[in-house]
């Protein structure tokens, strides 16, 4: 397996701020790789280290096996779709898309042809003569995509690619990006703070916290088997159980996670533990049921997911909760 991008103990410090701190990471060729984390977690700095806008304070960055740490952005065959798209407002859409080819000295005719093809690929045929200012947010993003892809990058970087779009467009664009990546086979690396976006689009997810890489894995791995309490908290609406509560629920006294979908609501006394329903939230595909269980003081309620089709219990009613042994996943308390 060829590695598109490799981080070897990479750090980027800004004075006393350790934006990226000793990250080891491998992005395989052809992957759709998500870097997920809250703001300030170092994911964007990692992206900028790949694009060349930042230079590592320590460590080695390799792109397709070549040491890239000190190579300036214009000498890397890596292109970026910027968060604000960064389209050149004084150029037409066509000129924007041709820009990368123009600065490389490719002749006018080839430039026009390839830019036209790219605009076709992102379904913007005929938009060439317009200015970026005349386009909608979704169209601008497509132009930014075409402008990056026309250079045939070895790695495409996307910085919060869907952040500025409204919900409907965001969902459509998720499918489209996925299809595009599949079709082109280019390694896509994108940064997001939206765990739903990361899990649904990527085939590998890297979770960042405070400048460090906490866990890398397939979306299912990260979702089902979070390595630390932080990952469980950040990646999904999972039950994060403090050691005392985990012990009370029949596990060892260690931080643990329990997926709401794995918890079944049964009659009082018929499950592993009894409790009282304190809140209901209708989610369409089912209802999220929060159950306060007798246990250590200050313990959070345990959340169960009651799928649609079975009537959820009423608020305030006593219930029992049951789950399979394997559902209780132990993790590190960080």
């Amino acid at each position: 397996m060829t590695l598109a991008v490799e981080f070897e103990n990479v750090s980027r410090h800004f004075g006393a701020v350790r934006a990226v701190d000793g990250v080891d990471m491998a992005i395989p060729e052809g992957a759709f790789f998500a870097m997920l984390g809250p703001s300030g977690s170092g994911k964007t700095t990692c992206l900028r280290l790949i694009s060349g806008f930042e230079t590592p304070t320590a460590g080695t960055i390799r792109i397709f096996g070549q040491d890239a740490g000190r190579v300036p952005p214009n000498r890397r065959n890596v292109n970026t779709v910027f968060q604000d798209y960064a389209l050149f407002p004084h150029m037409t859409v066509q000129q924007n898309v041709e820009y990368g080819l123009m600065v490389k000295g490719i002749d006018r005719r080839t430039r026009a042809r390839r830019a036209g093809e790219m605009l076709g690929l992102v379904q913007l045929d005929g938009f060439g003569p317009r200015r970026p200012g005349e386009l909608s947010g979704g169209q601008r993003q497509r132009v930014a995509l075409a402008r990056a892809l026309v250079n045939e990058p070895r790695v495409l970087l996307l910085d919060e690619p869907l952040g500025a779009l409204d919900l409907k467009l965001r969902e459509a664009m998720q499918d489209e990006l996925k299809a595009l990546q599949h079709r082109l086979g280019i390694t896509f690396v994108f940064v997001t703070h939206d765990q739903g976006e990361a899990l649904s689009m990527a085939d590998r997810v890297a979770v960042f916290s405070a400048g460090r890489l906490v866990q890398v894995g397939s979306p299912a791995e990260v979702y089902d088997r979070p390595r630390t309490r932080f990952v469980a908290d950040f990646v999904g609406s999972s039950n994060v159980l403090p050691p005392a509560l985990a012990a009370r629920l029949g596990g060892p006294a260690q931080w643990a996670s329990l997926r709401p979908e794995a918890v079944r609501i049964v009659a009082p006394g018929a499950g592993r533990i009894d409790g009282r329903v304190v809140a209901l939230r209708f989610l369409g595909a089912g209802t999220r049921v929060a159950v306060a269980v007798a246990g250590p003081a200050g313990a959070p309620p345990v959340v169960a997911f009651a799928p649609a089709g079975q009537p959820p219990p009423a608020e305030g009613s006593p219930v029992g909760l049951h789950w399979a042994d394997a559902a209780l996943h132990l993790m590190e308390g960080e």
Binding site: P73, N74, N79, F82, L87, Y99, G100, V103, N151
Partner: peptide, 8 residues
């Protein structure tokens, strides 16, 4: 940055 990213 966009210009540099595109090779300028």
């Amino acid at each position: 940055e966009a210009a540099a990213d595109l090779g300028a």
